[in-house]
């Protein structure tokens, strides 16, 4: 499935979120520990500086020409603008994941996102754990992206994509 928000018209600036059936998805067979470790001591260094064995470098050619993306399906956003003291709330589409549905609502005030609420997240058992992990960090990320503090997160997850997808559609509906 490819989902390209409507911003990709002829030219755009912004974010395109695409869900690709890419490179598989390993079966989660080990859950994250429920440890609450408080990241204690700091050990700097531990490294040696650059040596020799460089195998880095060139990547070869890929001559498969791009034949364009497949079906680009616009997300079926269900706008639900409801004015509330100068702010607008827009609800993104429900996006299915293997863990369950994900749906977010954004509150926009004077052109800025002031709140992002997860209306639906996977719940129960393992899925619940996943959503608990996935939601807050993206909430902060999406907000902080506006203030240009964090642009992206390394080590992100599958569920986060659906969150982004619903969020992006909601933002598009809100005209952000």
């Amino acid at each position: 499935m490819i989902v390209i928000p409507r911003r990709a018209a002829t030219a755009f600036v912004g974010t395109v979120v695409v869900v690709l059936l890419l490179f598989g998805f390993k079966t989660p067979d080990q859950s994250i520990g429920a440890t609450t470790g408080g990241s204690a001591g700091v050990v700097a260094d531990g490294g040696t500086t650059s040596g020799s064995t460089g195998s880095s470098g060139g990547t070869g050619p890929s001559d498969t020409g791009a034949s364009g993306a497949g079906s680009a399906t616009a997300p079926t956003a269900t706008p639900a603008p409801s004015a509330a003291s100068g702010s607008t709330q827009v609800t993104g589409p429900t996006v299915s994941t293997r863990y369950g549905p994900v749906q977010v609502r954004v509150t926009v005030s004077q052109g800025k996102v002031t709140e992002i609420t997860a209306l639906q997240l996977p719940s129960g058992g393992r899925s619940g754990r996943i959503s608990e992990v996935a939601e807050p960090i993206l909430h902060d990320e999406a907000l902080s992206a506006q203030s240009a503090q964090i642009d992206s997160v390394s080590g992100a997850t599958y569920t986060s994509g659906a969150y982004e997808q619903s969020l992006q559609a909601a933002l598009d509906q809100a005209g952000i």
Partner: peptide
């Protein structure tokens, strides 16, 4: 199931074709 790929483009005026080509390549 799949890998989520997001693109954040800060340049102005890049044709959507180029974006399509990025994801087309990944599919190939």
């Amino acid at each position: 199931m799949g890998t989520v790929v997001s693109l954040e483009l800060r340049d102005q005026g890049i044709p959507a074709d180029a974006v399509d080509a990025v994801f087309g390549h990944l599919h190939e």
